[in-house]
């Protein structure tokens, strides 16, 4: 009973965010010309959301986050590479393996790094990300620096048409579902005890511990959930959609920095914030790149500076401070 109540509350909280994904889904079908743009935007939104579950809620910044996304990409690629004869089952196994690998890495990292605070934590996670990458490249594991390519396998099993559909349609559908899952999980966390506990940790970890909150348990929980969603994202976007998992790409720390930027733009710890941040960052970059090829980043930088100076708590933080109506405020969490 308690649980269904929580789900109901979470659904109410997530109305606006879910609506955003559903609108994107409708736009995807209505304007097939824009389908890959919408898919890219969804990738950014989910990346921000998954990152937000841990960083936004606990205040810990995981610079090595992209390693979990990479694990997911490898999970899917390895499953398809070795089990492609099983057909669709290999893709299902791929998603499972993706979650398993990223959660496994998260538990290992969590055991070590979660004892650290602030910048020490942030940078220890960079060490994990780079360490895993160079272990793969240096010891020539799972394809080494060449990575894993699964296009041939997909085409051999499913034929050209279906393989293309998997890479450009099914992968996008998977993104939508992963996005919705991420929204629901975030909303559930926010509307249960877990959310309060995490918030307490963010405000003052020592005080939270003194209050009897099992700090480690909640931290590990948020950390692994965030990693698991990242794994799914990697499996769908980099392995299935891209067809090629290359270490230099999937361990690129630039993605973590982008995630930080998006969460920060939208407002950390909120439900709607990362989505707004992802939409803004993704579309802004794309838009500038289309009208001024080559100059978009030069324009983007001052815009980011203006945002951070004017709205240091993110867009959502700014809007919420100015909205008086409590119902509207709740809608905007």
């Amino acid at each position: 009973m308690v649980f269904t109540n929580a789900v109901r509350r979470a659904l109410r909280k997530a109305r606006l965010t879910l609506a955003a994904y559903i609108i994107l889904g409708v736009l995807y079908l209505a304007f097939p010309h824009y389908s890959q743009l919408i898919a890219t935007l969804m990738f950014y939104m989910i990346l921000a959301q998954a990152f937000n579950i841990f960083m936004g809620m606990t205040g810990y910044i995981d610079f090595g986050y992209v390693a979990f996304v990479a694990m997911g990409a490898y999970g899917m690629a390895l499953a398809v590479e070795s089990l492609y004869e099983l057909g669709w089952a290999s893709i299902i196994v791929g998603f499972l393996l993706a979650v398993a690998l990223s959660v496994a890495l998260a538990s290992m990292v969590g055991a070590i790094a979660l004892r650290l605070r602030g910048a020490y934590f942030a940078i220890a996670t960079i060490g994990v990300n780079e360490g895993v990458r160079y272990l793969i490249e240096g010891a020539n594991l799972v394809g080494g620096s060449e990575g894993v390519i699964i296009v041939r396998e997909l085409r051999a099993t499913f034929g050209r048409e279906t393989a293309n559909f998997i890479m450009t349609g099914l992968a996008d559908l998977a993104l939508l579902l992963i996005g919705i899952t991420a929204v629901m999980i975030t909303a559930l966390i926010l509307s249960t005890r877990v959310g309060y506990a995490l918030q307490a940790i963010r405000e003052d970890e020592d005080a939270a511990r003194a209050l009897g909150i099992n700090v480690t348990r909640y931290k590990v929980m948020a950390f692994t959930i965030s990693a698991g969603i990242g794994g799914l994202l990697g499996a769908a976007n980099w392995a299935l959609k891209g067809g090629y998992v290359e270490p230099a790409h999937v361990f690129n720390i630039h993605y973590t920095v982008e995630a930080i930027v998006m969460v920060m733009l939208g407002g950390p710890g909120t439900l709607l914030g990362p989505i707004i941040g992802g939409l803004f960052y993704g579309s802004m970059n794309y838009f500038l790149g289309v009208i001024k090829p080559g100059l978009q980043l030069l324009f983007l930088a001052p815009i980011l500076l203006a945002v951070v100076v004017a709205l240091p708590k993110g867009l959502m933080g700014y809007v919420r401070e100015r909205v008086k109506d409590p119902r509207l405020r709740e809608l905007l969490t």
Partner: peptide, 21 residues
Amino acid sequence: YYDDESNPDRVISLTERLITQ
């Protein structure tokens, strides 16, 4: 042409834009 920023994710959406739009 569009600038893909040497970024694989960007290539996907720009290629599609070139084709469909």
